[in-house]
Design a binder for these strands. Structure first.
Length: 263
DNA sequence: AACACGACCTGGTAGC
DNA sequence: TGCTACCAGGTCGTGT
């Protein structure tokens, strides 16, 4: 499920709730190796970072709990560790009686405690954070011109732009009027500039939407708060030109786009 | 290098 | 109601 905006919202809510607390007990049913327990018990939490769609809970002693929510995972704090739902895959009981909980109905999420250095080396392989100054139009255009990938697959590649997923890639392509199948190399520079700008704009708005959707505790940030123009709208008329939104298959995933606007 | 596809998992929903 | 088929925000490994 979660793309960068939802993961950012998860981190912002989690950070104040768990920072400074100590993990007193870890209960693991799935999604994390049983050995994780010994690696985290007794360790204080000193921060929560995000890299792309990855959540990094920093513990004392150079240990990082690296979590990826994949399709349906959610990570949040609850007031009382005894109230963790039956759907919880991992519960870290904290020293004030609260808990950090990983839920995931599909159990595709992954959590692992590892040396921070090793985790950081892995995160360094991701592309720049699209909402940071490192994500410049010049850099984006340079990488695009080197790539023969279709635009949609390029945007989904975490080594190119960290954190874009199926929904916001489609929305950014629509906003920039870029055809998802057209090869990056063959896009004009103005189109690439527009796409770069669209990525930043879409993600900025989506972060705000995800944070708003996360206002209630335990709530899962759905992209539903974000006004999707094409994603999930197969067969509906494009709000700009009236042509019907199409759904095609790319890289095994659905891509939604407007055949009128995105040429 | 680039792409397709299956695997990993469960739950929701559309259609019959 | 019950069954089937397909869909889902992600990533990895394998094969062409």
């Amino acid at each position: 499920m979660p793309e960068l905006p939802e993961v950012e919202a998860v981190c912002r809510r989690l950070r104040p709730a768990v920072t400074g607390r100590t993990i007193v007990e870890a209960r693991i049913s799935r999604c994390a190796a049983p050995s994780t327990r010994a690696a985290v018990e007794g360790r204080p939490i000193h921060g929560v970072d995000r890299a792309g769609k990855h959540i990094l809970v920093r513990l004392d002693g150079g240990v990082t709990v690296h979590t990826h929510l994949r399709m349906s995972g959610n990570l949040f704090a609850i007031r009382d560790h005894r109230f963790a739902s039956a759907a919880a895959r991992v519960v870290f009981a904290l020293d004030d009686g609260s808990a950090m909980v990983l839920e995931d109905p599909r159990a595709l999420a992954r959590m692992e405690a590892r040396p921070s250095e090793a985790v950081d080396v892995e995160m360094a392989k991701l592309g720049p954070e699209p909402l940071s100054p490192a994500f410049t139009a010049a850099w984006f255009i340079e990488k695009a011109k080197e790539s023969r990938q279709p635009a949609k697959l390029f945007l989904m590649d975490q080594a190119r732009v960290a954190g874009l997923g199926n929904i916001y890639a489609a929305e950014a392509l629509y906003a920039a009027r870029v055809n998802p199948r057209k090869l990056m190399q063959r896009q004009s520079v103005p189109k690439l500039r527009a796409l770069h700008e669209a990525i930043v704009n879409v993600l900025t708005l989506a972060v705000q939407s995800a944070i708003a959707a996360y206002s209630r505790p335990g709530e899962f940030a759905e992209a539903g708060e974000f006004p999707c123009a094409v994603y999930g709208r197969e067969g509906e008329p494009c709000e700009a030109c009236g042509r019907r939104i199409l759904r095609i298959r790319q890289g095994g995933r659905s891509t939604y786009y407007c055949p009128g606007c995105q040429r």
